[in-house]
Design a protein around this nucleic acid. Structure first.
Lengths: 226, 226
DNA sequence: GGAGGTTATGACACAGGGTGTCGTAAGTAA
DNA sequence: TTACTTACGACACCCTGTGTCATAACCTCC
């Protein structure tokens, strides 16, 4: 399996993109509601931003967690209270993306076929603002090349596939355990990964058209609604 | 942990599977031709076997490299001269499998369609003797669940895909960079991964039929020869 | 203004993976 | 024997990730 599902990037919260911006998804960071108790000196997003800058400047593997925490002015131990691993920094907003995919799938018109919905919605869910393109590309490259990142990616892939498979099972009216929706999930993932590979190799082109083309190539054809 | 020496059961080379069985592919082990110089005290296969026993007995993550080398009677440093990482132990014979796939694809009759060849050959390339089933299953489980193993797996996946894509490009008469053979490679890989997932979840069933079914589901349909 | 509870943090210690270096053991060929 | 070659062990590191404990800094209630 391989790489890339996602894209997205840097700071939503700090850079003006108005989204939810909660730290959901990072297991080690316990939601930080903060009623009473010492206030946090930093946040997952702030750490992630600093880390991303360093990764871009010096590379993922040549940037140690100590480098990140020194730049952020916190202790190394604190980093691991926000992120389970160094690579987790790259996935701060994956939960939001996944939620977006789930929402887009949920609101698809009932008349649209399963495949058509996916051709349209998957690229849309992975769309990112222009100012995040650079980072999205770099992250895709990391996901495709750095082993430590790939290991994390596999878990996100599984979640991604599960969202798609659940949707496919519902729309096709078959049980979730059935092989067909499972295959649909894998096909969508494969298209996503392949398109990111192509994108990294051809950074001047846009991701979305490639992704849609690959989805049309890879999505199992005999997917009749019902 | 660290019990003594682990009787060698089940070898691969020793157990009658006629494959190449050379240590090719392990970058750190420089082919060991051994003309002159101190003779090696161990081999990649011996280390791999001992490691596999320990993994089966105590789990991958609860088995440290020190445990393995203690059982093998060599130093920890020596282990890393044979394998680039602990997880690499699991892939000793992947090059042979890959070569088998390549060979099977090469000798497919010219009349058979690209898809039909793959439906037939991919399961055959992954077939393993009955006495290796337990270990193959365990390895599949590790590949699907342990992050450190997944990271390694991604690289093998890429090789696997490349073999398939190269074959598809040739048989379809399109350039290797074309998106169609790339998609075929991804589809075959997705089917392989999905079938292993299913196999791990249903260990009593056989891998091959599941794999073939998934290949038929996932392989891009409009694959006309030429 | 405490007192007590709550939360985030830092300091420290430690296991484990992985790497570089150096000296040396144990072979082969001359 | 000498010279060359290769494999190995012993250290010394750096890095990731985790557990533990003391303490800082906030809250609310008295």
């Amino acid at each position: 399996m391989t790489q890339g599902v996602v894209s997205k990037g840097r700071s939503r919260c700090a850079s003006g993109v108005a989204t939810a911006c909660d730290d959901s998804g990072m297991e080690p960071s316990p939601s930080r509601v903060n009623v009473g108790g010492r206030p946090a000196q930093t946040s997952a997003h702030q750490l992630a931003e600093i880390a991303q800058e360093l990764f871009l400047a010096h590379g993922f593997e040549r940037t140690s967690v100590a480098d990140i925490t020194a730049a952020a002015g916190v202790s190394r131990r604190t980093f691991f209270r926000y992120f389970a691993s160094k690579a987790d920094v790259l996935w701060v907003e994956t939960p939001a993306e996944q939620e977006r995919l789930r929402a887009l799938l949920a609101e698809a018109p009932p008349g649209e076929s399963c495949a058509e919905v996916l051709y349209r919605v998957v690229p849309e869910a992975l769309r990112h603002p222009a100012d995040q393109r650079r980072w999205a590309l770099h992250r895709a490259e990391l996901v495709l090349t750095v082993p430590a990142v790939q290991a994390q990616a596999v878990r996100r892939y599984a979640d991604w596939r599960a969202v798609v498979a659940t949707f496919a099972a519902e729309r096709l009216g078959v049980p979730i355990g059935d092989l067909v929706p499972v295959a649909v999930g894998h096909a969508v993932l494969a298209a996503t990964v392949a398109s990111h590979e192509y994108w990294v190799a051809h950074p001047d082109e846009d991701l979305e058209p490639i992704l849609e083309r690959l989805l049309r190539l890879l999505l199992p054809r005999p997917l009749k609604p019902q």
